[in-house]
Amino acid sequence: MSGLRITVWNEGVHEAEQDPPVMAEIYPDGIHGALAEGIRHGLPEASVRTALLADPEHGLPEEVLADTDVLLWWGHRAHGQVDEAVVDRVQRHVLGGMGLLVLHSGHFSKIFQRLLGTTCSLGWRDAAEQELVWTVAPHHPITEGVPNPLVIPEQETYSEFFDIPAPDELIFISSFDGGEVFRSGVTFFRGHGRIFYFSPGDQRYPVYHQPEIRRVLANGIRWAAQPDRPRTAPDVAKLDRHWR
């Protein structure tokens, strides 16, 4: 899939507030910058743009979404500041076939909660512990070339219960030093759209610089992208005959 059109969305609040201070060293171009760099490396033929909460229409006007095959969403502190009109717009495009990758604390985003219909709450603590990301769907294209386990030296701990519907596909399960486990990589199909949630990637740790993580995201983009599908959501159709 060459020539994919990718949009990376980041609320940009941690960057604007320089919180935590170490983030400026880990992600000098912001989380969105690191994600975009990784995508350009893994998918060199793709065109990549970034968008922020502070941009007009949060950087996601109709013309941007119409020109996006896959949208990546990273949020943490400002979920409530996302305008409902933008959520409506993103939802419409996902149902029509745009891919959506929801990352880390994006599980609490309005768009993820709306598409899944649950609170998407989970257990968490932050102790800079090692995370092991275990592949449980070895033949799925998202796992191609990904080591099993994928080792993240330091990461925020997420744990069950994760209040999501039963995933359409369970791709990764993570374990942590404290004994917690978490469904860290799951997919959903909504309308014509494909959704991949992947939890590793906190603002305190350089996770998005890891080649293995970048490989997962590139694989996820390829899987979610449907560039040749007309962007039309499923609708009621009148049958032209009676079936018995």
Rank of each mutant, 00 (worst) to 15 (best):
residue 81 Q to R: 12
residue 214 R to Q: 09
residue 34 A to Y: 10
residue 113 Q to V: 14
residue 229 R to K: 12
residue 162 F to K: 13
residue 19 D to V: 15
residue 91 Q to E: 13
residue 168 D to A: 11
residue 17 E to F: 02
residue 157 T to E: 06
residue 199 S to I: 11
residue 58 H to L: 00
residue 92 R to F: 12
residue 188 F to A: 09
residue 40 R to N: 15
residue 236 V to M: 15
residue 59 G to P: 06
residue 18 Q to M: 14
residue 159 S to C: 10
residue 208 Y to I: 01
residue 122 L to M: 10
residue 194 R to E: 03
residue 92 R to E: 04
residue 209 H to A: 07
residue 117 G to Y: 08
residue 240 D to L: 14
residue 138 P to V: 11
residue 87 V to I: 09
residue 99 G to Y: 00
residue 146 V to S: 00
residue 186 V to K: 04
residue 150 L to Y: 05
residue 82 V to Q: 09
residue 42 G to P: 08
residue 142 I to W: 00
residue 210 Q to D: 06
residue 72 L to A: 04
residue 95 L to S: 05
residue 129 E to S: 02
residue 9 W to N: 01
residue 126 D to Q: 11
residue 83 D to F: 01
residue 110 K to P: 01
residue 212 E to Q: 08
residue 171 I to D: 02
residue 183 R to P: 04
residue 170 L to W: 10
residue 41 H to P: 03
residue 10 N to Q: 08
residue 230 P to F: 03
residue 32 H to P: 11
residue 207 V to M: 03
residue 176 F to P: 01
residue 192 H to S: 08
residue 185 G to W: 01
residue 220 G to P: 08
residue 227 P to C: 02
residue 50 T to Y: 00
residue 37 E to I: 07
residue 168 D to K: 11
residue 110 K to V: 09
residue 226 Q to T: 09
residue 169 E to A: 14
residue 209 H to K: 06
residue 38 G to I: 02
residue 53 L to W: 03
residue 194 R to D: 03
residue 134 W to H: 12
residue 138 P to W: 04
residue 62 E to D: 15
residue 76 H to E: 14
residue 231 R to D: 07
residue 75 G to Y: 04
residue 73 W to H: 07
residue 40 R to C: 11
residue 105 S to H: 09
residue 169 E to R: 12
residue 104 H to A: 02
residue 185 G to N: 03
residue 49 R to F: 12
residue 102 V to K: 00
residue 88 D to N: 04
residue 91 Q to Y: 12
residue 158 Y to N: 04
residue 12 G to R: 01
residue 10 N to L: 14
residue 103 L to F: 02
residue 176 F to D: 00
residue 51 A to T: 13
residue 86 V to C: 06
residue 128 A to L: 11
residue 125 R to V: 05
residue 26 I to W: 05
residue 105 S to R: 05
residue 230 P to T: 04
residue 82 V to S: 06
residue 2 S to W: 08
residue 193 G to W: 00
residue 172 F to I: 01
residue 123 G to K: 11
residue 87 V to E: 12
residue 28 P to R: 13
residue 127 A to I: 09
residue 220 G to C: 04
residue 131 E to W: 10
residue 142 I to G: 01
residue 84 E to G: 13
residue 27 Y to Q: 03
residue 89 R to W: 01
residue 152 I to D: 06
residue 43 L to N: 01
residue 167 P to M: 06
residue 148 N to T: 09
residue 100 L to A: 06
residue 228 D to T: 13
residue 68 T to N: 07
residue 169 E to H: 11
residue 34 A to H: 06
residue 37 E to D: 13
residue 175 S to E: 08
residue 204 R to D: 13
residue 189 F to K: 14
residue 91 Q to G: 07
residue 188 F to M: 10
residue 113 Q to W: 04
residue 12 G to Y: 01
residue 204 R to E: 12
residue 68 T to V: 06
residue 107 H to Q: 15
residue 150 L to E: 00
residue 96 G to R: 00
residue 144 E to L: 07
residue 9 W to M: 05
residue 184 S to Q: 08
residue 46 A to P: 03
residue 56 P to Q: 11
residue 135 T to H: 09
residue 243 W to E: 15
residue 208 Y to D: 05
residue 107 H to N: 15
residue 153 P to K: 10
residue 193 G to S: 01
residue 17 E to S: 12
residue 161 F to K: 12
residue 216 V to S: 02
residue 118 T to I: 04
residue 165 P to A: 13
residue 153 P to V: 07
residue 110 K to G: 12
